[in-house]
Amino acid sequence: MSEKKTERREFLFTASYAVGAVGVGAVIWPLVDQMNPDASVKALASTEVDVSSVELGKAITVLWRGKPVFIKRRTPEEIVEARAVKMEDLKDPQKDEDRAKDPEWLVMLGVCTHLGCVPLNDKGDYNGWFCPCHGSHYDTSGRIRKGPAPTNMEIPKYEFVNSNTIIIG
């Protein structure tokens, strides 16, 4: 067999393999992507909450994307306590001002950043939240102070539509 012929043959085989591989890849993607959140799940991304009935010092829990969201109406003492903390004392330094747009309202994802349990309100060494699973303590701003959790509880995207209604997401 001449050299030229061999070359052409090898090109043909390489091309077949390459094109075939592209096809296999293109087929695998839909099979993987079908497990991603579907259109109806994505559409539920925002939740509207009426907070008019929440009393000072109390918190409500609402469901957003299948996870609990804590909406706490903080007392002036709690706000002062949250704002007085020195940044050096924090494991995940973050100002309370950055976490609560309106100091009276703290809206955060009620999910412990350790392994996803739901912390208990008004418990723990810092008057905030305490996670019963592995003992993480959060302060009145939802920041991690003690225990295995690596970061503060997450603040979701939210806004006040009016003084009584919050849209989360």
């Binding site: 839909p30 099979l31 992507d33 079908q34 579907d38 259109a39 109806s40």
Partner: peptide, 13 residues
């Protein structure tokens, strides 16, 4: 119908 409408590539599968 959910598969046909909402699931990613559900109609194809």
């Amino acid at each position: 119908e959910h598969i046909m409408r909402d699931v990613n590539y559900g109609w194809l599968i």
